[in-house]
């Protein structure tokens, strides 16, 4: 069983920490429609990892610095350069990936290490990694809690928030940088390719099942924790890649949420129809 081994325990603890952070930030990703920002920053992390591999520095550190720079660049160019956020992301994301490919090819570094960043290697976590994960996650969660009312006002109505004295610049860049940090800590779990799923699916499940942000946050957090724990157990049981399994579990949870969503009323319609059929 997964928990009988030290690496399994570390994977579960690390996975649950990552799930908590991702699920919390996922609420803002969904309500402000920042899914593409998440995609952009996570794929840009490839450039950061490549710099680390080529320079012989810990790739997580270089990816972290690079992602924060890209996140800041997305904010700065879209605000000051008067470009749409998705245009800036499209450009920075492709340029960072291209830089990563060129650097890796030049250093001839297409190896197992690179693949672990692309697809995740949660079972390779050591306790130091878990502590780093916990500290970075605590930073992000503290920011989200302490500035929650300002963030909520900003994502709902930026114009009035600005006029009311909410520090919108701090809140916007804080949110982008929090996303960058969350992405970097999540790369270990599911890898660069799949990390954006963790930023999108929990919040999307929450929105399906609740009409108020408090409920959305509770559902988002629960689904993130259940998805990661179930994904890790299933992957160790059937011996398949843990990152991909987690994403697939979450995807099925999303489908279930769609079916059960009171907003869509599929269940109510199905119940009504089956009631009518039995009456006939």
């Amino acid at each position: 069983m997964l928990l009988s081994y030290g690496f399994g325990q570390r994977a579960l603890v690390g996975g649950l920490i990552i799930a908590t952070t991702c699920s919390f930030i996922s609420f803002f990703v969904i309500v402000r429609r920042m899914a593409f920002v998440g995609m952009g920053i996570s794929h840009a992390a490839f450039g950061g990892v490549a710099i680390g591999i080529v320079a012989g520095v810990n790739p997580v550190l270089t990816a972290g610095g690079f992602c924060v720079l890209v996140a800041g660049g997305i904010g700065w160019l879209s605000r000051k350069g008067r470009l749409h956020e998705d245009t800036v992301i499209g450009i920075l994301f492709a340029a960072s990936m291209a830089m990563g490919v060129v650097l890796v090819r030049m250093a001839n570094a297409y190896n197992l290490d690179l693949m672990s960043y692309l697809f995740g290697s949660i079972l390779a976590l050591n306790w130091t990694d878990v502590i780093i994960l916990a500290v970075l996650s605590a930073l992000v969660i503290s920011f989200l809690i302490l500035f929650f009312k300002e963030l909520l006002f900003f994502v709902f109505d930026e114009e009035t928030a600005t006029a009311s004295g909410v520090p919108v610049r701090l809140v916007y860049y804080g949110l982008l940088i929090s996303m960058a940090i969350t992405i970097v800590v999540s790369i270990k779990l599911v890898g660069i390719i799949l990390v954006s799923a963790l930023l999108v699916i929990p919040g999307a499940i929450g929105i399906q099942l609740s009409g108020n942000y408090r409920g959305v946050l509770v559902v988002s957090l629960s689904s993130g924790l259940i998805g990661v724990a179930a994904g890790l157990f299933i992957s160790s049981w059937v011996d398949v890649a843990s990152g991909a399994t987690i994403v697939l579990v979450m995807f099925f949870m999303f489908l279930l949420a769609l079916a059960l969503s009171p907003k869509r009323g599929y269940m109510q319609r199905w119940r009504r129809r089956s009631g009518q059929a039995s009456a006939n």
């Binding site: 009312k149 300002e150 006002f153 709902f156 109505d157 928030a161 609740s210 942000y213 409920g215």
Partner: peptide, 13 residues
């Protein structure tokens, strides 16, 4: 996902 009182509370930020 915000209620009327949540929106009004934003004004108190």
């Amino acid at each position: 996902p915000v209620s009327v009182s949540d929106v009004v509370m934003m004004g108190r930020a």
